[in-house]
């Protein structure tokens, strides 16, 4: 049986990891295998960890406002490594317009403040059923 595997990562200098931890726990409680990287990860480190762990999703938590820089860089690094079947998703303080732009670049659904854990868990479960390829 193949389990859903998610890499939860905190990129950059932003040290607020409560959100990442809460989401990681919710995913675990939904029967998902979650690999938590800890703080201060570079895009290269995140992509390398995703490769070594062979995850289905990479979920970034960004509260610093650097999302327009970090998401595209992680996408690039994943593509550089030939990883084309991982869904890059995440959450944080991200304005709707930016979410739209990132989605057009190939990023999956992004979650803002106030999202319920149920909604997040559903997204992972539904998306892995569809085996949707987002990073291409």
């Amino acid at each position: 049986m193949e389990k859903i595997k998610v890499l939860v990562a905190k990129p950059g200098l932003d040290g607020h990891d409560r959100g990442a931890k809460v989401v990681a726990r919710a995913l675990r409680d939904a029967g998902i295998e979650v690999i938590y990287t800890g703080l201060h990860q570079t895009p290269e480190m995140i992509a390398e960890a995703a490769l070594q762990e062979d995850v289905n999703f990479v979920a970034l938590s960004i509260l610093s406002g650097a999302h327009m820089t970090i998401f595209p860089r992680v996408l690039d690094k994943l593509r550089e490594k030939g990883i084309d079947d991982i869904v890059l998703t995440g959450g944080g303080i991200i304005p709707a317009d930016d979410m739209k732009t990132l989605h057009e670049m190939g990023v999956g659904k992004l979650f803002g403040p106030g999202t319920s854990l149920e909604e997040i868990v559903n997204y992972f479960q539904e998306t892995s059923k569809k085996k949707e390829v987002v990073v291409s």
């Binding site: 389990k3 990681a24 726990r25 995913l27 675990r28 409680d29 939904a30 029967g31 998902i32 295998e33 979650v34 690999i35 938590y36 990287t37 800890g38 201060h40 990860q41 480190m45 960890a49």
Partner: peptide, 13 residues
């Protein structure tokens, strides 16, 4: 739940 939180990487980044 069958889920797991794998945290060994935190010490090995």
């Amino acid at each position: 739940t069958g889920g797991a939180l794998l945290g060994d990487r935190i010490r090995m980044t």
